[in-house]
Design a binder for these strands. Structure first.
Length: 249
DNA sequence: TCCCTTCTGTGGTATACAAT
DNA sequence: ATTGTATACCACAGAAGGGA
């Protein structure tokens, strides 16, 4: 990636983080990056995998998740703090991305006992399998591996699995379509007083056709960096040594 | 009282395509 | 490489209604 583009995108993301509660438009962000809004949208998409609007929305919802779990602020106030003027819109967007309503998420303290998978699709009998590689210079705890339509872990995964650590994963009966493989885990050993280091991995898209037995997709775990959109979907607590798979694959 | 869901009109955004 | 146009789509605000 071009260094100028990289800096522009980093600046835009910093602007988003610093102004979550304000009304930010593509024009504002493009101006800060000194690109036309058209060019800005394209380079941003290339760098992060998400359009600026979706990335900003993801940051807002991630901050809302944090506030719900760590504070007692009302849902209405949180909605306002993270930039929504309408609690209805906030609640709908939060539920759609996280998998639980704001109060439901707060009651669960941010840890999901279950994850819904996409239903109602014709059975493809296609498996997606592969290897989750350990991050460079470290091991990992339990790994969430899910199939999503976009480069962000939000909404309903087409299929998912939680494997005990780096190694093989298999997802069976994957619905027809094009899916990104997103992995999420924590480093096995806490790096500092902030706790275990979050790890991420992205591969694909893998296109599942009828009549193909299996697709092989490997995923490499690495430390999260600033260009990675947050994980919005509520997951089981991957920091625990034992994670039971809530739904059989 | 607080929150969630659902609905509708509106405006911004995403993106294919064209131009420079 | 960068900017602009056209247009379909989606996220938004705001309101109504209902549940706890």
């Amino acid at each position: 990636m071009d260094e100028i583009v990289r800096q522009a995108v980093a600046r835009a993301i910093m602007t988003m983080r610093d102004n979550l509660g304000d009304r930010l438009t593509i024009d504002d962000l493009a101006r800060a990056a000194m690109f036309s809004k058209f060019h800005f949208t394209r380079v941003f998409l290339r760098a992060t995998g998400l359009s600026p609007g979706r990335f900003l929305s993801a940051l807002r919802l991630a901050e809302a998740k944090r506030l719900l779990v760590t504070t007692g602020i009302s849902v209405a106030d949180i909605s306002h703090q993270v930039g929504y003027n309408s609690v209805g819109t906030f609640s709908a967007r939060f539920s759609g991305s996280v998998g639980f309503s704001p109060t439901g998420y707060r009651q669960l303290r941010g840890m999901s006992p279950r994850i819904a998978e996409r239903t109602g699709q014709p059975e493809s009998e296609v498996a997606v399998r592969g290897h989750v590689w350990r991050p460079p210079g470290g091991d990992t705890g339990p790994v969430f591996v899910g199939l999503f339509p976009a480069k962000i872990a939000e909404g309903t995964p087409a299929r998912y699995a939680i494997v005990p650590g780096a190694g093989q994963y298999t997802l069976t009966d994957v619905p027809l379509g094009s899916w990104y493989v997103i992995a999420h885990a924590y480093g096995a050993i806490p790096q500092d007083d902030r706790g275990p280091r979050p790890l991420t991995g992205l591969a694909g898209p893998v296109t599942v056709h009828r009549g193909v037995a299996a697709s092989l997709v490997d995923v490499r775990l690495r430390p999260r960096h600033g260009f990675d959109p947050p994980v919005l979907l509520a997951l089981p607590d991957l920091r625990q040594a034992q994670v039971r798979r809530p739904v059989a694959v």
